[in-house]
């Protein structure tokens, strides 16, 4: 790749990711989205379309299975079904909806970002941008970053609703728990929503950066794009898991009573 990377090559991947993140914010601040509105909107739709079915299936299944499994255990230990719904809703909001959705988005959207940017590197489009005094971060990364951040938040909310509804259906249809017992929300506070929201914002920032970095660092011919895509998925998923750990700790100490 070009100058940017050869200079930065000695630095660790994490430092490069932070450099890319700050450049992205810089270009967003300079009105990148206003200038690339069309690309931004296209990306928004493409990412949403690519992920919505995937999220529906995975989070729906997750909701059903976890309610089912928990109910089997509860049935054995304390046949008191009324605690299951609220506990399930709480863990979904705080933990599983954002993190599972985050992992799915890391796979679907992250691979897409890396493949698109990687093939632009391989076909020298990135070099051509730089020859024309156009910054690849402005043209390629900023619109994808903004679209991915927004979609991560939206898809996580949507996925959360899907999993909760699916769980409620299983509880009602298989175990006969009334909906008003299962969907009791009085033990969920704003802090819980805040914890979940912080997670999906953090994932929405980390995933496109990890993926764009892998794409921009693509080396070699078209095989390089495959390697970059794999690296994007691995790094983005890893970011999700690490951020989950950090933010769960943060929420435990500072948000929850």
């Amino acid at each position: 790749m070009g100058l940017l990377l050869s200079r930065q090559h000695q630095r660790s991947a994490l430092l490069r990711a932070f450099a890319l993140l700050s450049q992205t914010f810089l270009w967003l601040g300079r009105g990148s989205l206003r200038r690339r509105r069309q690309q931004f909107i296209e990306q928004l739709f493409e990412m949403g379309n690519r992920s919505v079915l995937f999220i529906t299936v995975t989070l729906g299944t997750l909701g059903m299975i976890s309610v089912f499994q928990v109910l089997i255990q509860v049935d054995r230990i304390l046949p008191e079904y009324s605690v299951v719904g609220p506990a399930f809703l709480l863990t979904m909001v705080r933990e599983f909806a954002p993190t599972i959705a985050g992992l799915m988005i890391a796979t679907r959207v992250g691979s897409g970002i890396a493949a698109e940017i990687g093939s632009m590197v391989v076909t020298e489009q990135v070099d051509a941008l730089r020859m024309c005094n156009a910054e690849p971060v402005d043209y390629l990364v900023a619109p994808r970053f903004a679209a991915c951040l927004i979609q991560t938040v939206l898809l996580t909310m949507y996925g959360g609703v899907v999993s909760v509804v699916a769980g409620g259906l299983v509880a009602n249809l298989v175990w006969g728990i009334p909906y008003e017992v299962f969907f009791r929300v009085d033990n969920i506070t704003y802090s819980d929503f805040l914890a979940g929201f912080l997670k999906c914002v953090a994932y929405g920032i980390a995933i496109p950066i990890a993926a764009a970095q892998a794409g921009l660092e693509t080396e070699g011919g078209s095989e390089g794009v495959g390697t970059a895509t794999t690296r994007a998925v691995v790094n983005a998923s890893f970011c999700v898991v690490v951020l989950d750990f950090i933010l769960s700790g943060f929420a435990f100490f500072f948000l929850f009573d």
């Binding site: 489009q125 730089r130 020859m131 005094n133």
Partner: peptide, 20 residues
């Protein structure tokens, strides 16, 4: 550098046409 690059025109081996 960006300024100096404006004094170049370049045809890239892989076309490098922007697909967007």
């Amino acid at each position: 550098r960006a300024k100096l690059r404006e004094r170049f025109g370049m045809l890239f081996q892989n076309y490098a046409l922007f697909d967007f």
